[in-house]
Design a protein around this nucleic acid. Structure first.
Length: 638
DNA sequence: CGCGATCGCGCC
DNA sequence: AAAGGGCGCGATCGCG
């Protein structure tokens, strides 16, 4: 095989011989180029290029690229007389060279992609799910390595973990100034060939480099967990979560109607029509002098740029004002309709708002490298911020996510996972005792802070204690605690002082975390399973900047350890689930699994063991708990 | 017209 | 710069 020369495969004999060479190696990197309107939707995107690389060699396989290299007419913009907008006229290229067809290529690759060789990709879930459609919706099998996850474990604070960015940073090579990968089908053949080849080549080079760095930093264990997680995420993405499309249509009508009605209320109260979503206009109308048509209200707080805030908290401070109340109503309906209902349905003819439901299911992208703490993020759409079923609309929206016919959802979430982790690390006696005796953590905190028995804790006391516990985990000050407990700042200071007396171990723990973290180079914490969060700010000389880093450090240890635990639970669950049962969603401390209705009991036991069994519980000195419900709709849990 | 910043808000 | 940690997304607005 040639050394990293641009080796393009045009015929089956060549393909066979190349695949044979790759099969002789333990590991290879691969990358797909997709095209067409669904090029970014992994489970739909058709592949026009596959590139592969291993030690000293890389190849590209074109299979349907539409362009040759000779330019016939360049891209232009033309004014459309009807729409009065510019139409993009793409460049026209000479005919492409004859290429292998996908139906010829993939069967030859099958033995390699389903072998025990290590398959390496950058953002591997995308490539694996993309390739799956050529193999009966089955993704290539493990073992996997993902250079985007490696890059993230090595530097979680990096702005972008994209292949182009890290290649520039680590190798000093900027090879995609023309953004060829964004839309390969508008570029000439040779340019795309070179691009695809470099993607695979650098994926390989990054893997080698990162693998050594991860070992050197003691991050190989957590990388192992993440690669097990990757397999689970690939299955989740392929499966998707079923949504009730008919009910969704109904919600569209209902919310649209309601929005029009509330809009009328807003304009009535304002005395005129205006751009109802414009923050500057709302500021004028709410806080401007009455002489100018404003309401003359007193602002509660300011935005970052110094203007009076129009957020819900500010509007709620004026319950007697009709405009403020109407705007609150409007914002709620607007959010539900535009972010959720239309976010899933999409808008006809709006490429920025595509329909997210494909086969009756939403195939969200749980982003493994999406946070600095180790949690997942989720996008297109985000299924981790669906309204809770506490309100009518929340119930309706969460109720869209339902079990398939003849199936049930098993919804399980960890109880107070962050406080359990805090108890484990701090060994705060009161907290540990509370968890050992199955007492609600906020009630326990309230009893200690207010000096009463557990059964004497009132709602208000528990609510204040909840605020205090949040303050501990997030590092909030007395002002925030006061706001949460709706008391004075002075009283909140008192609460925090008593808390410190009753839970001294927590404060000693925090100090110890920071002391240790500061001595490391660079300053960082390590979570329960060894994940790093680097916090250079811990050594800043400026007090408030350092304080911010200190809050992040403590929170990252707790939040990141909780993330480690649920990731481990996901891997255990996926391994234990038999055919026909699937993990669908993961929401920080919650897992949603589907199973045949007549096997719900079996599924429940599997979920319980995955989340609480020996392999998990041994990691903490405090007992974990879960709240588990078997339901038809997600909204019915809780 | 595309892009980033800002504001605001849904979740854990 | 930041005294509540972590996200993604929609609408607006100003910039190039």
């Amino acid at each position: 095989m040639p050394r990293f020369s641009n080796n393009i495969i045009f015929d089956l004999d060549h393909l066979h011989s190349v695949v044979g060479h790759f099969a002789d190696r333990d590991a290879f990197a691969f990358d797909v180029e997709t095209f067409g309107p669904n090029r970014g939707v992994a489970h739909l995107a058709p592949v026009s290029w596959l590139s592969m690389a291993t030690e000293g060699a890389a190849i590209v396989i074109p299979m349907g690229h539409p362009n040759g290299d000779r330019l016939i007419s360049r891209a232009t913009r033309k004014k459309n007389k009807d729409t009065n907008k510019f139409d993009q006229i793409p460049a026209v290229w000479a005919a492409p060279p004859p290429q292998l067809r996908p139906s010829q290529v993939w069967p030859v690759l099958e033995p390699l992609f389903f072998s025990d060789r290590l398959k390496i990709a950058h953002n591997a879930t995308f490539d694996l799910v993309t390739v799956a459609k050529y193999f009966n919706d089955t993704p290539p099998c493990a073992p996997y390595a993902d250079t985007i996850v490696q890059s993230w474990l090595l530097d979680e604070n990096r702005k972008s973990q994209g292949l182009k960015e890290i290649t520039k940073d680590y190798w000093g090579h900027d090879y995609d100034d023309e953004h060829v990968g964004r839309q390969v089908e508008i570029h000439p053949f040779s340019k795309v060939a070179r691009y695809a080849y470099l993607d695979a080549k650098y994926t390989w080079l990054h893997w080698r480099r990162f693998d050594a760095l991860l070992q050197a930093e003691g991050l190989d264990q957590i990388m192992g967990l993440e690669m097990d997680v990757l397999k689970v995420l690939t299955k989740m993405r392929l499966r998707g979560a079923k949504v009730d499309a008919d009910t969704l249509e109904g919600l569209y009508s209902q919310f649209t109607e309601e929005l029009v009605e509330v809009e009328g209320k807003v304009y009535g109260a304002a005395g005129a029509r205006f751009n109802i979503n414009s923050v500057p206009q709302k500021q004028k109308l709410l806080y401007g002098p009455k002489a100018d048509g404003g309401q003359g209200l007193r602002p509660l707080k300011k935005t970052d740029s110094g203007n009076p805030s129009t957020d819900a908290e500010s509007l709620e401070a004026h319950p007697e004002n009709a405009l403020a109340s109407a705007l609150l109503e409007y914002a709620d309906v607007d959010k539900m309709l535009n972010t959720y209902v239309l976010g899933y349905m999409g808008e006809e003819g709006n490429p920025k708002k595509p329909c997210r439901i494909y086969d009756g299911r939403i195939h969200a992208d749980f982003v493994q490298y999406g946070t600095v703490t180790g949690r997942f993020s989720c996008r297109e759409p985000n299924l981790q911020n669906i309204p809770r079923p506490d309100t009518d609309k929340g119930k309706q929206l969460r109720g869209l996510f339902m079990a398939d016919r003849g199936e049930k959802l098993i919804v399980a979430d960890y109880g107070q996972i962050e406080l359990v982790v805090l108890a484990h690390y701090s060994q705060a006696a009161a907290l540990v005792d509370g968890f050992n005796n199955g007492i609600d953590a906020h009630t326990m905190t309230a009893a200690k802070v207010f000096g009463v028995d557990f059964d004497e804790v009132t709602k208000a006391m528990r609510s204040a204690a909840k605020g205090i516990n949040f303050a501990v985990v997030y590092g909030a000050g007395p002002e925030k605690v006061a706001a949460m407990a709706s008391t004075s700042v002075k009283e909140a200071k008192g609460f925090l002082k008593v808390h410190q007396q009753e839970f001294p171990e927590i404060y000693r723990f925090k100090d110890a975390v920071l002391r240790t973290a500061r001595t490391r180079k660079p300053p960082h914490i390590r979570t329960l399973l060894g994940r790093k969060r680097r916090l250079p700010g811990l050594n800043y000389s400026q007090k408030d900047a350092r304080g911010y880093a200190e809050r992040q450090a403590v929170n990252s240890l707790i939040q990141g350890s909780a993330a480690d635990l649920i990731k481990l639970a996901m891997v255990r669950l996926d391994k234990a689930l038999p055919e026909g049962m699937d993990l669908l969603l993961t929401v920080h401390d919650e897992l949603v699994t589907s199973a045949p209705a007549d096997r719900a009991d079996e599924a429940e036991a599997i979920v319980r063991d995955a989340m609480l069994g020996e392999g998990i519980s041994k990691l903490l000195s405090v007992p974990m708990t879960i709240d588990l419900k078997v339901v038809d709709k997600w909204a019915e849990a809780k």
